[in-house]
Design a protein around this nucleic acid. Structure first.
Lengths: 122, 122
DNA sequence: CTCGACTGACTACAGATGTAGTCATCATCT
DNA sequence: AGATGATGACTACATCTGTAGTCAGTCGAG
């Protein structure tokens, strides 16, 4: 049932995750710098997200307030999983290895991750 | 210039990355279990990949041999970067943190990553 | 009450994507 | 030489995506 969220839709979701509920206008304003969309475009995207059941819209007088129905956490988890599955055979270690090699990790980054791992090793 | 590769196209690329050059038929056969595509479908996807300049086709008698023009490494790097940018503000550390928490990393996994990081810390 | 502003609903449309059929051509078997 | 099979080229078509215009209803100002 977890409908796929397109790129443009994702931008809208990010706004709602940051602050919700919002009206269509508010969402549009929040996107003003990033994307150069007309209000109509934002409304269409909101409509599609509602149709996909990932955003709820409740009437507030004569306009709607939109709020996300899925947690950002869940979305991020899903997308990350997709990547890991598609490109790394479902294994996280190769991904981390890849990132470690490709990206310039500062010593601070490395220390941070090491600390994190240590914490996991209960 | 790096045209975007769709999901279905990616499946074809994986085959070519594993072994190349291949004919359309061979690619189709290699995909037989995973996806249930007709030969025509595979040919269309190959055609699109050629159009996108990520696959080369050279004549071999009266059929074509297809070979990838982009390295898997580069594709993986690009896609990973996209994810990191879209979901983690371009920072790798939060992604690793997320993965570490979400996935069940075995002690062996953790040890592996730790070793990797240690190697990086010149 | 009437008119305009605000807002959602509906419609549009080009390009991408997933999936596949049909046509033309060349090689080969008989 | 004609029939048959293999193979790429071209065409098709529904759906999804990105982007946006137009219509219609309602609330507030005059």
């Amino acid at each position: 049932m977890a409908e796929r969220i397109s790129d443009a839709e994702h931008a809208v979701m990010e706004v709602l995750w940051r602050r919700a509920p919002l009206t269509a206008i508010e969402v549009s304003d929040a996107l003003a710098d990033e994307r150069n969309w007309s209000l109509q475009t934002v409304k269409t995207l909101l409509g599609r997200l509602v149709a996909k059941n990932v955003v709820a819209h409740e009437a507030d007088g004569r306009r709607y307030l939109y709020r996300p129905l899925v947690e950002r956490e869940d979305y991020v988890a899903g997308e990350s999983q997709r990547l890991v599955d598609r490109l790394f055979g479902g294994r996280v270690t190769p991904l981390v290895a890849h990132l470690a090699e490709t990206q310039q990790l500062s010593d601070k980054d490395i220390a941070e991750i090491e600390a994190l791992l240590k914490a996991l090793k209960s």
